[in-house]
Simulated scan of single mutants.
Amino acid sequence: MANVILQTDIPGVPVKHGKVRDIYDAGDHLIFVASDRLSAFDVVLKTGIPYKGQVLTQISKFWFDFLSDTIDNHVVSMDVEDFPAPFCNYPDQLRGRSMMVKKTEVLPVECIVRGYLAGSGWKEYQKSRTVCGIELPAGLKQCDKLPEPIFTPSTKAEQGLHDENISFDKAVDIIGEDKANFVRDTSLAIFKKARDYAESKGIILADTKFEFGLIDGKIILIDEVFTPDSSRFWPADKYEPGKNQESFDKQFVRNYLEETDFDKDGPGIELPTDIIEKTSAKYIEAYEKLTGQEFQK
């Protein structure tokens, strides 16, 4: 099996380990490194997914470029040679999976857009005919397309804790009305733009989440964007409402875990080899279908 990087180590540099990313302080900038760790149900699993960090970074690069005429983003460079010392001296760890980004004041709300009725939204709908408190039409099936995409923000949880769905009014309370209106409207606009593009490639973009940051009084797009970690992608030619869909994302792992006695509040577990290999292949397939380019391992 291919080499898997679960954690990077740049000697002498403080690092913050997130669920998937290692974040280093580089003075005026940050170095974001996407590891091959996989988080499911907010639990980091013990097994890494080969090439996952490279796929996440390269797909984000594609989408940041694609959306650059709609909203600015935090990317400065994705070339390790451009990074300051000592980072430029560790290409074996960083090449293809890292980006130097602007420091921002991160808005403490995750911006989720749902275009289809899946995941936790489907579970809530079955109980109350709502998703995050938004009333939906009766009679919808699992994975049905919604009449219009909906904005359903959540809190940003610390590692080991679960994000919490919140109302738009609560988001206003947290970040203020102007910022909340901006991230809602922008999230819906870029979701629709990416959805239409993905459809042209035979892929359904079911839902996604964004993060935004504030720099010099301006809100920009940060973190990752439309990756298999932050989004649900389904093959359009196999789409069939009323059941779980085949996917190009970590929903494949979620479905496997749902069939086991996995404790969503417990420690991560080891994944079997076939699940690891299939998941890696799904990530790479998503990259190649969306970008039209061959993935360079």
Rank of each mutant, 00 (worst) to 15 (best):
D173E: 15
T152L: 13
G202N: 03
Y197T: 07
F191K: 08
I203G: 01
H162C: 09
D169K: 14
S200R: 04
V172L: 07
D169M: 12
T155D: 07
G160D: 05
S154W: 04
N181Y: 09
F151R: 05
K193A: 10
F168Y: 15
D173T: 13
H162R: 10
T186W: 03
P153L: 09
I166F: 09
A180M: 12
L161I: 00
R184P: 00
D163I: 09
A180F: 13
Q159H: 05
T186K: 15
P153E: 06
A194D: 06
A157W: 08
A206H: 00
T208E: 03
Y197S: 04
K192L: 11
G202R: 01
T152D: 05
A189K: 15
I166Q: 04
A194I: 14
I204S: 00
A189D: 05
N165Y: 05
E177H: 08
E199L: 14
K201C: 09
D196W: 02
S167L: 11
G202S: 04
I175M: 15
T155I: 08
K170C: 04
Y197L: 12
D207G: 01
I204C: 03
I175H: 01
S200T: 14
H162M: 12
R195W: 12
A180R: 08
E177K: 15
S200I: 08
S187N: 07
A194N: 09
E199Q: 08
I203F: 09
E158H: 10
D169G: 06
F151E: 03
I203W: 06
S187C: 11
K193I: 15
E177R: 14
Q159M: 12
G160R: 08
F210R: 04
T186F: 04
F168W: 07
H162A: 10
K156E: 06
G160F: 10
Q159F: 07
A206L: 01
K193F: 09
K192N: 13
V183Q: 03
A198Q: 08
S167I: 09
G202D: 04
A171S: 13
K192H: 02
D178F: 03
I174S: 01
A180Q: 10
E158K: 13
I190V: 15
D185G: 10
D185M: 10
R195L: 03
D173N: 14
K170Y: 06
L161A: 07
I204D: 00
Q159K: 12
A180K: 11
K156H: 06
K170M: 12
D207N: 02
D163H: 11
F191Q: 07
Y197F: 15
